[in-house]
Design a protein around this nucleic acid. Structure first.
Lengths: 114, 114
DNA sequence: CCAACATTTCAATAATCGTTGAAATATGGA
DNA sequence: TCCATATTTCAACGATTATTGAAATGTTGG
């Protein structure tokens, strides 16, 4: 990923509502999610939402397709991966930026780490 | 890392000059780099640079210390790691966002992956 | 103390951003 | 065709952003 594209993608994610939208799209998976459903879930005005969708699409972070009256938005995982790749390659010390899998709170006294 | 902090960090990196500054700080390592040297390297006005440093510091992505007449800025790798962690945990499908080590061209026909 | 150097502070400016309300467009069903 | 639904377009607005120039601050060495 080029620096220019990275800046655009970062800017697209660097906003509260938009980050929420993208996270929701990620949860929704490749199937995507209707604009209306997103608007309702996040309590955002539909026109505001369109504005944010545009930003995400221009950054290559989302796609749209029409399905009936609804517009279905979906995350572009490829771009997100490229962004994370760019950050780890360019903005980390080469050490330790690859995320240690700490996401799940490591089930009380669970397995001894390998 | 909290969502709020993630947004702040993303915003800090979502600007051309500032991303350049941060990358330079990463290259400089924990020792850091003098404001003047950065200004010269990136051809930025010193006051503009101060503005960007502030953003990076407020995002927890940089620290300053005085050394003689110079202000030495250094990257906060901890925060950057946390940001990458947040992104991979929250904004990826759970699959494949952990960067495949493609940065180094994978030493010709290296180890077979476990 | 004074001069130079390194950087910050401040005020001003143009540009971009996020949100709103009103109106337009597209689709599907009665 | 007419209506309701789903979403976008458009113009407006206040807020924030990045940059500039001028002046202030802090530091070192003579």
């Amino acid at each position: 990923m080029e620096k220019t594209d990275a800046v655009t993608a970062l800017a697209a994610l660097a906003q509260d509502s938009r980050l929420d939208v993208f996270r929701l799209l990620v949860q929704a998976g490749p199937e995507g999610m209707a604009a209306g459903a997103i608007a309702e879930t996040l309590d955002l005005a539909p026109n505001t939402l369109t504005f944010h969708f545009d930003r995400l699409r221009m950054a290559g972070l989302a796609t749209v397709r029409r399905e009936g009256r609804s517009m279905i938005y979906a995350a572009r995982f490829e771009t997100m991966n490229a962004l994370v790749g760019f950050l780890t390659e360019n903005c980390c010390a080469g050490v330790s930026c690859a995320p240690t899998p700490s996401s799940k709170p490591a089930r009380k006294r669970g397995k001894i780490l390998a």
